[in-house]
């Protein structure tokens, strides 16, 4: 009885050694509720939409499209976009094109370390259906099986203009309160984890990275 209760509430962390299990939290992540007052939630969403900090983690060829965003030509600073080198402080994860299995592992770790609400932009065609890497042995085909995606920007490669348009679109979605990817992730946590573990064969990290 106690055992079944504990497996329901905690994560196994089976990939870790005995010693490492002491170091990591094994509590299940919880969904978070919006603020009870709607005006407060709307205001919070407005603040979130106007201050998008992008995690500076180039996960594929699309990472090269992120650099010009900050230059004089595109100037994403206007929209409150800034780069953040640490996942703790950033709120937007731009998946730059293809994600190989080795990168996917790091993407999952970084994504789980980000503090909610967090948003994922899938850039390019590869996260949608594999793109030109549809038959590659090392590149995943459907990114939304592993992490929830809030916005897709397709193309191969989308130019920075499109990325700026996508950011504006994401802001609209956030202001309407429709970006609940982080909650969806926790809601379907077991499904996502099963998919992730199907692909990542050497799972040597905790089941949820706090």
């Amino acid at each position: 009885m106690i055992k079944s209760l504990s497996t329901e509430d905690t994560l196994e962390n089976a990939g870790l050694t005995e010693e490492e299990q002491q170091l990591f939290c094994n509590a299940r992540p919880k969904q978070y509720e919006p603020y009870p007052i709607k005006a407060v939630e709307d205001f919070a969403n407005w603040a979130r939409a106007n201050s998008l900090w992008i995690l500076a983690f180039g996960t594929g060829c699309g990472a090269i499209e992120l650099r010009p965003l900050m230059t004089a030509r595109f100037d994403a600073n206007r929209f409150g976009v800034a780069g953040r080198p640490t996942p703790r402080q950033s709120s937007v994860f731009v998946i730059g094109g293809y994600a190989s299995v080795k990168t996917l592992k790091r993407i999952i770790r970084s994504y789980e370390q980000m503090q909610g609400p967090k948003f994922v932009i899938a850039l390019g065609i590869c996260p949608v259906n594999g793109g030109m890497y549809f038959d590659s042995y090392n590149t995943i085909n459907q990114f939304d099986m592993y992490l929830p995606v809030d916005l897709y920007i397709t193309g191969c490669m989308p130019r920075p203009e499109v990325l700026v348009a996508g950011i504006v679109e994401l802001q609209k979605k956030i202001k309407q309160g429709r970006c609940d990817g982080a909650n969806r992730y926790i809601e379907n946590f077991d499904w996502y984890k099963a998919n992730q573990k199907k692909v990542i064969k050497n799972w040597d990290m905790p089941d949820y990275n706090w």
């Binding site: 919070a44 201050s51 409150g80 609400p117």
Partner: peptide
């Protein structure tokens, strides 16, 4: 806005 956003993190 940045300060508010960080404050409103869940």
């Amino acid at each position: 806005i940045n300060i508010l956003k960080n404050f409103f993190k869940r």
